[in-house]
Amino acid sequence: MVCLLTWLAVSVQAQDRAKIRQQERDVKAAIVFKLLRFVEWPETSVLQDEPLTLCVWPNEPYLETFREIQGSKVGSHSLEVALVNPQNSEFCHVLFGSREMAASTEQWRSVSDGKSILTISDSNDFAGKSGMIHLMMRDQRVSFAVNISALENAGLRMSALVLNLAEIQSANTSLPQIQTPVERTNEHP
């Protein structure tokens, strides 16, 4: 009976946790979708009525979440979701990488440098590291910071209406890494 109750409690906690994580993803993905409406790409980058392509890294946990809103309209464009390939990223208009992907600055640059690609992430201090839009948690709500110079460098423009909602704040602190099991045995003598 005790085992059954423990199993039940553990399984309920696990479900809650998965739900909380998915809820966070859903809200962030919806915010990303909304933000796209307020961004202007150079005319040569995305033609009228052409799809707007949102690229994500392979294995990106947000992939399925974004696919749920694939086909939705962003102005005159319909949203497409695709996997990014550093060798061929010309078709990307937006690049999203979550903190779970932990992509390096070099990886971001290999895809977006010299192109009009809007970069968005919820990684720590993304906007401060030449990323364009940083999604972050503040008082249990999602907020975002915008790196205007990075946007301008890529030839992108964002509506002042949205910039009024943006803010800059320090990113969340992180817990130390879990101690390596090997390290725990590294005692003397």
Binding site: R17, I20, R21, Q23, E24, R25, D26, V27, A29, A30, I31, F33, K34, L35, F38, T65, F66, E68, I69, S72, R99, E100, A102, S123, N124, M137, Q140, R141, V142, S143, V162, L165, N172, T173, S174, L175, Q177, I178
Partner: peptide, 29 residues
């Protein structure tokens, strides 16, 4: 996410989200 996408940006920014950023997610970053 489809339901949420119907809300305005301002409404989305007001939604309370129970982030898991206190433990496992912190390790992600």
């Amino acid at each position: 996410v489809s339901e949420l996408a119907e809300l305005s940006l301002q409404e989305l920014l007001e939604i309370r989200v129970d982030s898991i950023s206190t433990d496992q997610a912190s390790e992600d970053i």
